[in-house]
């Protein structure tokens, strides 16, 4: 018995070693960097928790967290609500061409995010199709530089995220609904439940684990947003669309503040971990 356990250890040793060298060691390194003020090359100075306190003392860095909250609304909540609604509608009756539907809605998920960003940058442009359509229907006064407007840039970016994650949520929920026993629906109907009642009594509880997966992936996705913002607004106008990931990149590569970058990275990792654990806990609770 004992021999086989040591055998097991020997088997996992190689992958474990890789994990230690390429995951654990860099994480520990980042963690230790985060307590220093360091340009990446010359001698570093110990600054204690200063890099972490920047999240409180530096209003720009603090604002990145509130931007993430807005993005979570667009990347996670909105697509999940839409995904649930469409999954509930679509699965009520087998429609011809369903596979095509699913394919079309899922398409954004397989597109490279840079391509998506470039396409939307064009759509949102001053001379882009969105403004042109507004002009065509006589709403010329509503046109604006969507991604260059302090009030609209963040929601405009958020809607790109909604477009990307909506299909993913929907497909996930459709597959979840199909695994709910049909007897439950029949029982609900026998009890005289309408479509709405049926949704809240059967569909939603049955999708608990899919909801957990969707929430975890989309919320951490929102927290990590980089490429979408980098390609479209670079955090502008001003700092109105700055995300923690962009702030991290700037600190690490543009302005040599490696310690600050490490602290941002650690905070992002902790938040992701916290969200994943919290959602997991809630989903497991009956």
């Amino acid at each position: 018995m004992r021999r086989s356990r040591w055998m097991g250890l020997a088997m996992v040793l190689v992958p474990l070693l890789f994990y230690a060298v390429f995951m654990l060691a860099p994480i520990c390194q980042s963690f230790s960097y985060s307590f220093y003020k360091w340009d990446g090359h010359s001698a570093a100075t110990w600054v204690g928790l200063d890099n972490y306190l920047s999240f409180v003392t530096d209003p720009v860095l603090a604002s990145t967290l509130s931007h993430v909250l807005v993005l979570i609304g667009f990347f996670a909540l909105l697509p999940i609500v839409l995904g649930l609604a469409s999954a509930a509608l679509i699965t009520r009756r087998a429609l011809p061409g369903m596979a095509l539907f699913r394919f079309i809605y899922f398409l954004p998920q397989v597109l490279t995010s840079v391509v998506v960003a470039l396409v939307f940058k064009r759509l949102y442009g001053p001379e882009g199709p969105i403004n042109e359509s507004l002009r065509a229907v006589g709403l010329g006064s509503w046109t604006k530089a969507w991604l260059g407007d302090f009030d609209w840039a963040l929601p405009a970016l958020g809607l790109i995220g909604t477009w990307v994650t909506f299909g993913f949520c929907m497909v996930l929920f459709i597959s979840g609904v199909s695994s709910i026993p049909t007897e439950l629906y029949e029982a609900a109907r026998v009890d005289g439940a309408g479509p709405l009642r049926e949704f809240f009594a059967v569909t939603l509880p049955g999708l608990r684990s899919q909801l957990a997966v969707a929430l975890t992936l989309t919320i951490t996705g929102a927290l990590r947003t980089f490429d979408l913002v980098w390609v479209t607004t670079r955090g502008g106008p001003g700092t109105s669309t700055l995300t923690p990931a962009i702030a991290l990149y700037r600190a690490a590569f543009e302005n040599p503040q490696v310690g600050q970058a490490a602290a941002i990275g650690i905070v992002m990792a902790l938040l992701c971990l916290l969200i994943a654990v919290a959602i997991g806990r809630i989903a497991e609770r009956e």
């Binding site: 250890l9 994480i27 520990c28 390194q29 963690f31 220093y36 010359s42 001698a43």
Partner: peptide
């Protein structure tokens, strides 16, 4: 020592090593 304990020990020492590593960049001359 059970494999699990051994693992735990290895991870903890790896973490400790990372944390106690000398200040980054300290080798560079002034």
């Amino acid at each position: 020592t059970s494999p699990l304990k051994f693992l735990r020990l290895a991870v903890v020492s790896a973490l400790a090593l990372g944390l106690t590593a000398c200040a980054p960049g300290s080798q560079a001359p002034d």
